[in-house]
Design a binder for these strands. Structure first.
Lengths: 177, 177
DNA sequence: CATACGGTAACGTTGCGTGACCGTAC
DNA sequence: CGTACGGTCACGCAACGTTACCGTAT
């Protein structure tokens, strides 16, 4: 049996977070003390561990609640969240590109953490890959992980149209052999 | 001179968004009609275009306001946002990894858009790269874009420790030659 | 006169943080 | 008796969306 702040500390959360979880009926203490203090037992603790795990996956609390209620659709919800994560990453990549364009325009671009097409090609070239090798790389990437291939190219700042063209070409080449 | 809904449509925004921009003093119409309707002129339109541009970069409205007030620290703010974007992407990658772990554990993993280390190595191997080529790739990547190299490896689901080790090794190899 | 637009104002969303004000444990 | 904890409101945050209710343009 632990009080609210003890439990919060053990999980790296705040008291107010646990209060909130109680308010939205996500995690209720299994008991109360004589002075009306919340008392959490080990079952509550296990439930909170699950909650934290799902929070690390970025699931909203409402979905976590329904997951803990019945874990039937777990993989469905997780897969949906995975797709959403890809969308969010695509959005962030787009925002990066907008910023890079603005900074480039002001000649303020020097060394960024963001990889673009030119730099990627430079790296592959310095590794010793020929144009033909790079073409083969596209073909294999498209064959083995088509979605990830598209995401990766977009991440290099390549336009959707060009990405489509590259992928189409890769599929055609892959079919030929 | 355009009314609020006309302007909103032209920029793909909602009426309520423009009302909100007015409330927080981000974009005020330069005039009002006899019936107290908001009237936006071309200067307002240009300002809104700037706002939309910065919104595409994911900047909060408050920062956009201060940017439009005096554009002195523009590149500073944009660079800061770029760093923040990298953090956010790292967070999303981590969330993806948590989900993949959960799904893998349930043997529900089949084809995802997310690239992991194994698949990446498979792709490079199918492209025809030997182990030595892959090593050289690390070295060049580290030499040409060290930060992006780390981000990329973490994106493959590799632990921070292993990423550090790989990068350290890459730097050493790069120094030898 | 209908209806499509304009105005203001207030509340809802998410996941808590913060503060007030009060009782309790040590 | 101090102070570190507990309790319950209630409000604030970002960026709007969504009513509601009323006036205006056509």
């Amino acid at each position: 049996m632990q009080t609210i702040s003890q439990l919060a500390r053990r999980f790296g959360l705040s008291r107010s977070a646990l209060l909130y979880y109680g308010r939205i009926d996500l995690l209720q203490p299994s008991g109360r003390s004589a002075a009306n203090y919340r008392l959490y037992n080990t079952a509550d603790e296990r439930r909170l561990a699950q909650i934290c795990l799902y929070r690390q996956a970025g699931l909203p609390l409402q979905e976590i609640r329904s997951l803990l209620h019945s874990s039937d659709q777990q993989s469905q919800i997780l897969t949906r969240r995975l797709a959403q994560l890809n969308q969010e990453m695509a959005l962030l990549r787009e925002q990066s590109r907008v910023i890079l364009r603005l900074l480039k325009h002001r000649r303020m671009l020097r060394q960024t953490r963001v990889l673009d097409k030119q730099r990627w090609v430079e790296i592959l070239a310095a590794t010793g890959l020929s144009e033909e090798d790079m073409h083969r790389w596209h073909v294999e990437f498209e064959r083995m992980s088509p979605e990830a291939h598209g995401d990766f190219l977009e991440g290099l700042g390549i336009s959707k149209e060009e990405v489509s063209a590259i992928r189409r070409w890769s599929r055609e080449q892959g079919a030929k052999r």
